[in-house]
Design a protein around this nucleic acid. Structure first.
Lengths: 237, 237
DNA sequence: CGTAGTTACGTACACCGTACGTAGTGCGGT
DNA sequence: ACCGCACTACGTACGGTGTACGTAACTACG
């Protein structure tokens, strides 16, 4: 028997090609690229084993030679887009570097709106994630303190970015598979919210909605959030 | 036709009982409680329409009278556990109050480990979520500044809590449905990570793993994260 | 009192992940 | 050189999912 299934495994520890047998028709990169293409175009829920296999032009079950479980396919996808991170020579200004990292991650997530859903600490150690982590640590060299604290800073920043971009994309991604538009959806939710506020049970929320009449500048909110978090870690402040 | 399906809707805007017809056999609270019971005991993935209907003792399709889509069931669940929040008279010390809120939310998520996955801004305006939000705003009355900034603080804090508890629960929740134990899974992942680090390609990560030999105190990490975020919002610091 | 709108629920459809069996292929050891 | 085995490829099938639709019973309103 090839792989005793009842054992945990990390896809990255499994060699892509292993001596014996006919040479595989596709590489991991091919498969990841196909899955990413589908997810970008039709949303993460459209990424099924059958659909990816069809995109590649092979039988469904052939995919299982490359990807033992669907979860591993997700890991492949996350790693593939993590490879889009542009890494640079640290500038010496850790705050500026981390801001740049955060913005890059945000852009990445806007390019691949399904990425936040796959952002789990479990997927945190794929090859490209490791390169990314090492780069962040390099940017933080000027910051005094133990490596552990720097890891905490990176985790916090990643968490913030993921959370905020999730918020930014939430309704957009949700309505992708629904038969009505995002605007219709929002209109209904806002109407309900206003009807609740009109009861007078939530005076402070009412004030909040009075003050913020116009549309919120999500980019500015993101920027403020980053600044505040970095402030919390800055020893010189 | 009862409900023209091709319209967006908010479950909370739909009346629970509407004049005509036989009186419903179950309340929304009944249904939410059943779903929560299943999710607590068997994980969120075990919460299917069929399973919940079986738990209630009714036919599968009867559920759709109460809950037009599965997503609404999730919204019911999130609201139900949000009702477990204990709300108090604000103390006047906004930092202390917000810390208490954060810890309470963390406890809530540990009690219902599936909650982080349902934490989406889309679900942010259920009845109990509104009560919770209003309470947070009340706690922040002593903090100067516009309501908008306070909303941002609350969002940030909720994001942090969700992110960190997700991390804390990640492997535990993942291995729930898998045929091997969490320890086995962790061992494999750590072994792979060490093999990668041993290549010398990631010197800073190597240092991080040297320094943090022992197990990480997740509670302390959480506490530090909160403090830092609150620092970022504190005008007196 | 009819009747319209609701509840209840069985059946059916399309899709999902994936276990399993079978056939073909080409490298490794003898 | 050649055998055997590990590997690739893939069709079929199973048990699950969300939910559209049709039908029968029931009740409050006009």
């Amino acid at each position: 028997m090839a792989g005793r299934a009842a054992e945990p495994h990390v896809i990255w520890a499994r060699p892509e090609r292993s001596g014996r047998g006919p040479r595989p028709a596709y590489s991991r990169a091919d498969i990841a690229a196909a899955a990413v293409r589908i997810a970008d175009a039709e949303g993460l829920d459209a990424v099924s084993m059958r659909r990816v296999a069809a995109e590649l032009g092979c039988g469904t079950m052939s995919l299982y030679n490359y990807v033992p479980r669907k979860e591993d396919l997700h890991e492949l996808m996350a790693d593939a887009v993590a490879g889009e991170h542009e890494l640079w020579e640290p500038s010496g200004d850790w705050r500026a570097d981390m801001l740049r990292v955060a913005h890059q991650t945000r852009d990445l997530m806007h390019r691949h709106p399904w990425l936040p859903r796959l952002m789990s600490p479990v997927y945190g150690f794929s090859p490209n994630a490791l390169r990314y982590l090492e780069h962040c640590l390099a940017c933080l060299d000027p910051l005094p303190g133990p490596q552990g604290a720097k890891m905490e800073l990176i985790a916090m920043l990643n968490g913030i970015v993921t959370t905020y971009v999730s918020n930014e994309l939430a309704t957009a991604e949700r309505t992708r598979s629904l038969p009505w538009s995002q605007d219709q959806e929002n209109a209904v939710r806002i109407a309900y919210l206003q009807s609740r506020i009109a009861t007078g049970e939530y005076p402070r929320m009412a004030r909040a909605f009075m003050e913020d009449a116009g549309p919120i500048d999500l980019e500015a909110v993101f920027e403020r959030a980053l600044t505040r978090v970095l402030d919390g870690f800055d020893p010189e402040r």
